[in-house]
């Protein structure tokens, strides 16, 4: 695995909407890692499971279009959002399962000169986290670390869509995908904080329908991480970030306790270890202050 990574890059909607710091930090990290990202700027929203809930064929066709655009580049596809990963994998599973159905979907796309081909050039769609561990490698990552996250106690937060359902998300071939965040944190020199919520739901999908339940979930996980001694959380999912960070003051009210825990996007955490500046990584844009994380890093390992 010495060749450089070059991928068709789907940034998703939220990284260019309410979490622009994710998009920005990914660009910085890619440059530092020497990855080439070919951005799919014409691709569309994955539907986040909501469109599939409304009309399965619509969701499948929209994502088939994205896959087809990626396949036109001849590259594997990368996303930076657990929800995109999950929603797109769900559609891809159906598309791959049934050639007649695939043909039906491709007929719709044919007017745009597009077609999704199953298994074309070994086509894959992987989250940045998966690519980092499986294709780039933790050893190479370690070599790139210039500012080890010594003494930084980091709680992983995966986001449901990247850990379940295991059968759909390639856990047969890659059974450790649910401990990659821990592996990355350690590779970057940080300390993993164990707490109850790492693979639980942030609550975001029901924030509109049941705000209390949603924020209770976010608030509980953030609180548990604080109780376990975390300096920050890290997540590969910008939608989780919305509930854990942007909604954190509201979540604190629901769980009736003080919170105030920094929540980093995965590229931000990697970026810090690779020597990027917190400001450039957009950490000042977070709702929950990241100052403590920055202080921890400048102070180095605690006694």
């Amino acid at each position: 695995m010495t060749e450089n990574i070059k991928v068709a890059y789907w940034p998703g909607c939220v990284s260019r909407g309410f979490t622009p710091e994710l998009h920005g930090s990914m660009a910085i990290v890619a440059e530092k890692l020497g990855w080439e990202l070919v951005e799919l700027d014409r691709a569309n929203c994955c539907g986040a499971g909501v469109i599939a809930e409304h009309n399965q064929e619509l969701a499948d066709t929209l994502n088939a279009r994205t896959f087809a655009l990626a396949q036109q580049t001849g590259l594997a596809m990368m996303n930076i959002c657990s929800t995109c990963q999950g929603a797109q994998s769900e559609c891809q599973q159906r598309l791959d399962a049934d050639s007649a159905y695939r043909a039906h979907i491709n007929e719709t796309l044919s007017g745009q000169g597009l077609a999704y081909e199953k298994g074309k050039d070994g086509f894959t769609n992987k989250n940045f986290l998966w690519l980092l561990v499986e294709d780039y490698g933790l050893d190479r990552l370690k070599e790139q670390v210039v500012r080890p996250l010594s003494g930084l106690r980091v709680g992983p937060f995966y986001g449901c869509y990247i850990v379940r359902p295991k059968e759909r998300l390639g856990y047969g071939e890659f059974p450790d995908r649910d401990v990659y965040l821990e592996q990355v944190i350690e590779a970057l020199g940080g300390t993993v904080v164990e707490y109850d919520g790492a693979r639980k739901c942030c609550g975001f999908p029901v924030v509109t329908m049941n705000r209390d339940t949603s924020l209770r979930q976010a608030g509980t996980h953030v609180g548990d991480a604080i109780d376990a001694g975390a300096d920050c959380l890290v997540t590969p999912c910008p939608l989780c970030h919305l509930n854990l960070d942007m909604q954190q003051p509201e979540a604190a009210k629901v769980v009736n306790r003080d919170l105030g825990l920094a929540v980093l996007h995965l590229p931000q955490l990697v970026g810090l270890a690779l020597g990027a500046e917190p400001k450039d990584l957009g950490m000042g844009k977070h709702i929950a202050s990241t100052r403590w994380v920055e202080e921890r890093l400048t102070a180095g390992a605690p006694a």
Binding site: N44, Q56, T61, T108, Q112
Partner: peptide, 22 residues
Amino acid sequence: EAMGDVKSIYAHAEEHSEELNL
């Protein structure tokens, strides 16, 4: 131009809304 693609997908899919039950 991309929006045109999306809209045509909507037009097709809202008409069929086929459900593939695996």
